[in-house]
Design a protein around this nucleic acid. Structure first.
Length: 395
DNA sequence: TCTGGGGTCCTAGGACCC
DNA sequence: TCTGGGGTCCTAGGACCC
């Protein structure tokens, strides 16, 4: 989906089309107050000049999505709001409306599934679609079906998307970026050298900043540079797994299937504080946040019908280092008090001398509640609990 | 006043078991 | 003097993705 979060907002506020708009941040942006001042007007008639600007933003958020006019200024996803404000102070800031975004996510995915049922979820705004067995899926190299899907999504949602059609997921993903926004791109096997090899190595899904830097250190900058290396050389430098994968990826080879079903592995909640907190000096505040996170994870698990055996915490220090601790218990649980107790024990195993900027709670090793394993769980949860002891936050 | 939140997968060492 | 070899599970950290 093209600039998904921002495009969803522009459906509500069409008067902002063509303007630089960024979505993200949230907590401390001035949005609500400004919009409430125009509560008497329909949303689409609130003057653009009334919307909060990036230059007035205060807080630690990052940009989730920027509209294409905002991207002209160098503003983009994952950039800190304060940094973005320097590049484009006049951009309008809107908070993420997750409920609305999720609603449109379900809508575009179900629209696709009605046309081409083999769909793999790749997050809120992206999917892989298997065209192989869709009638007409091969016409014009897939362009006919791609156009049909694109049109159906637009008619259903008013949103545009970009599609890449290729012999496998790896190349299709790269192709999908060739013609954004609202584009379609077809890449045949014979096009790998001309269309894929000139691209920066970073465009391969799976090469991030670290691998990219390592590649650059070996004077490999484009995908073609990687493809030109002997397999043995790549294996010597990156190990057998990564070396083989790099070689395959550079040659456009990928045999991963489109996976339509998957079970979650973990669920977590985390939060970054508005200011760094200290375990002792801000004990009450941290304890409150910690309890809330445990309650939220427990609610998520219960709502989705899962329980988990491994309970863990995550801290981020003021210097941005991250620490995690986890502990596996005998039975799967989705109970907030149990999660709080085990996570509280984890907290005792980590350095709490430094200021913290983030706290998170995670439950892993999930089993479906109601499965055989979870029936035993329900019984065992009733077993006597260890005596209550206050944890580090005094809860 | 740099740097969100929710995920997956991989690696590597140690415990433990046969 | 010499101390197997596999396998699985747990834990911590890190890379990466949307």
């Amino acid at each position: 989906m093209d600039a998904f979060f921002a495009s969803v907002e522009l459906l509500r506020y069409p008067q902002l089309r063509g303007l630089p708009v960024v979505i993200g941040g949230g907590r401390r942006s001035v949005d609500d107050a400004v919009l409430q001042a125009h509560a008497d007007l329909p949303l689409s008639e609130i003057p653009a000049a009334a919307f909060p600007l990036l230059r007035d933003y205060v807080g630690r958020g990052v940009i989730t999505t920027a509209t294409y006019p905002a991207r002209q200024f160098g503003v983009g996803s994952a950039m800190g709001m304060m940094k973005a404000a320097k590049l484009c102070p006049q951009a309008i800031v809107l908070p993420v409306d997750f409920d609305e975004v999720r609603r449109f996510s379900r809508l575009f995915k179900s629209t696709i599934a009605e046309i081409a049922p083999v769909v793999e979820d790749r997050g809120i705004d992206e999917v892989y679609i298997d065209f192989t067995d869709v009638p007409g899926g091969q016409r014009e190299g897939g362009r006919v079906l791609a156009r049909l899907i694109q049109r159906a999504i637009f008619e259903r949602t008013g949103l545009t998307c970009s599609l890449g059609v290729a012999p496998n997921k790896l190349v299709a993903k790269m192709a999908s970026e060739f013609n954004k926004p609202n584009g379609i791109s077809i890449v045949y096997e014979a096009d790998i050298a001309s269309k894929i090899w000139p691209l920066p190595a970073r465009k391969i899904n799976g090469i991030g900043p670290k691998t990219d830097a390592r590649l650059a250190g070996l004077h490999l900058h484009t995908i073609g540079d990687i493809a030109a290396q002997p397999l043995d050389w790549l294996i010597d430098n990156f190990g057998s797994g990564t070396g083989q994968w790099l070689h395959d990826a550079a040659w456009g080879r990928d045999d991963r299937p489109v996976v339509t079903e998957s079970e979650p592995v973990s669920m977590s909640r985390e939060t970054t504080f508005e200011r760094d907190l200290h375990a002792v000096r801000d004990r009450a505040e941290l304890g409150e946040v910690f309890t809330q996170l445990c309650l939220q994870v427990a609610a998520d698990l219960q709502r989705k019908g899962y329980a988990g055996k491994t309970i863990g915490i995550k801290l981020r220090y003021d210097d941005f280092r991250t620490a995690t601790r986890d502990s596996t218990i005998e039975y799967a649980t989705a109970d907030a008090a149990t999660i709080r107790r085990v996570a509280g024990q984890c907290l005792k195993r980590v350095d709490l001398g430094r200021r913290l900027r983030l706290l998170g709670v995670r439950v892993g090793k999930l089993v479906k509640a109601g499965a055989a394993d979870a029936t035993a769980t329900a019984v065992r949860v009733q077993e006597p609990q260890p005596a209550w002891t206050p944890d580090l936050f005094g809860q």
